[in-house]
Design a binder for these strands. Sequence first.
DNA 1: CTTCTTAATGGTCACTCTGACTATAAAGAA
DNA 2: TTCTTTATAGTCAGAGTGACCATTAAGAAG
Lengths: 247, 247
Amino acid sequence: MSSAPEGYDPHAFFPFAVTVDLAVFTVREARLHVLLVERGEAPYKGRWALPGGFVLPRESAEAAARRELAEETGLTQKSVCGFHLEQLRTYSDPDRDPRMRVVSVAYAALVPDLPEPRGGGDAAHAQWWDAGATGPLAFDHDRILADAHDRIGARLEYSCLATAFCPAEFTLGELQQVYETVWGVELDRPNFRRKVLTTPGFVKAVDGPPRRTGGRGKPAALYRAGAATALHPPLLRPEGRPEGRTS
Amino acid sequence: MSSAPEGYDPHAFFPFAVTVDLAVFTVREARLHVLLVERGEAPYKGRWALPGGFVLPRESAEAAARRELAEETGLTQKSVCGFHLEQLRTYSDPDRDPRMRVVSVAYAALVPDLPEPRGGGDAAHAQWWDAGATGPLAFDHDRILADAHDRIGARLEYSCLATAFCPAEFTLGELQQVYETVWGVELDRPNFRRKVLTTPGFVKAVDGPPRRTGGRGKPAALYRAGAATALHPPLLRPEGRPEGRTS
DNA sequence: CTTCTTAATGGTCACTCTGACTATAAAGAA
DNA sequence: TTCTTTATAGTCAGAGTGACCATTAAGAAG
């Protein structure tokens, strides 16, 4: 009766507000960080929240997310278009916003270590937080953040997007740090190296033998992200053989 | 300026219609089938479309999807609550519906082989189609259907949800048929069997030695879905070593 | 009643990939 | 110089998989 079997029944139309929420991740100092903004008004005044905002009348959710990403990081639209941005899922609980019916499309963005977001406008409110040590966030953002973290961790297993956390040129140690930080585990360095280098298209060595000085130890070779997007076979997290095996 | 840095700015509110669209899959006669409904009105009158409808004012998208699933299959709410239903992604292109701004949350449902949907109301319009041989669908539903097929194929690799396509008790041959149908490949029977049986919790044998008569050949043992949800290590599709390897 | 066909089930073997580990190289620090 | 640190190279055993072959148990064909 209230449904629309043919697809769309104008009589059943009910107006929703549609927003995007962004979980913008980066890896800083071996910790996963997420960009948060402090709320200045009720509800949840003073609480921290994921950046986000309304989808405009002539804008896709993807475009809105990209726009918000630029605004909150204080960068230009152009400079953020290289960042990895992926839709997570949509949150639609009727009571997720106490004021009105708001459906939110959540996105995860992966960015390299950026300077503190002190761009002109909106970005002034934004700040990086340790993703595992945020207080309780506004609305259902704790849930969204947890889902986003889970998703990114899973994506690292089957895709090459760990490079999205790194600058244009990076060492294998830095790439490994991304995995270790997102997964919260330590990986064996030679094994990680072997896996990355034998996966065609994951990374490509920077031509000459340039090296980066980070401090101690032997200088590391530099690499760039390769053309591959999928990781086949996957790079599975350690741990977790659930039970014993037969033999 | 039009965004809402603090999270929600009532002035920027723009009303959207929010719908759910369902890709309801089943495996029939070794082909992947999807449930479609024929549109009775413009736009796309006469075209087939994914079943779906508006999200009600006090309903989550998940609940709306579950409700639509029951309506379109002609089953009760209760009987569909055991079916696997998962959110895919949200489609929000401003022009995806020529009449108004509609944001649609897409879901995939996996059901066992059901009788032709001839329940009373809405279900009378619904019909199973070979998922690879639908004509062009209404709106952006071709895209949604393709995305849904891709997602289900990928989920079979890492999860145990292939059993969602099977009746309560099934043979390993039937389970293998699910993989072969969704992936469009043939699998080696003994190897598939070994993989499924050595994965703890994927399936559990039905106690006594009951067997099912399907026609020719040796009768097969029956199994039920196990408690596991994840498949670790995964059951990867064949094909696709992208390039050669070093050694 | 045999024989053929079909499908389930049981097992082998080589190869790949991974985890655990050892060794060497090249830098700064003591 | 020597120590420490990090990058890089290589080895080796075990798990998991793909490609097979063999056996069993049913119906169908003769």
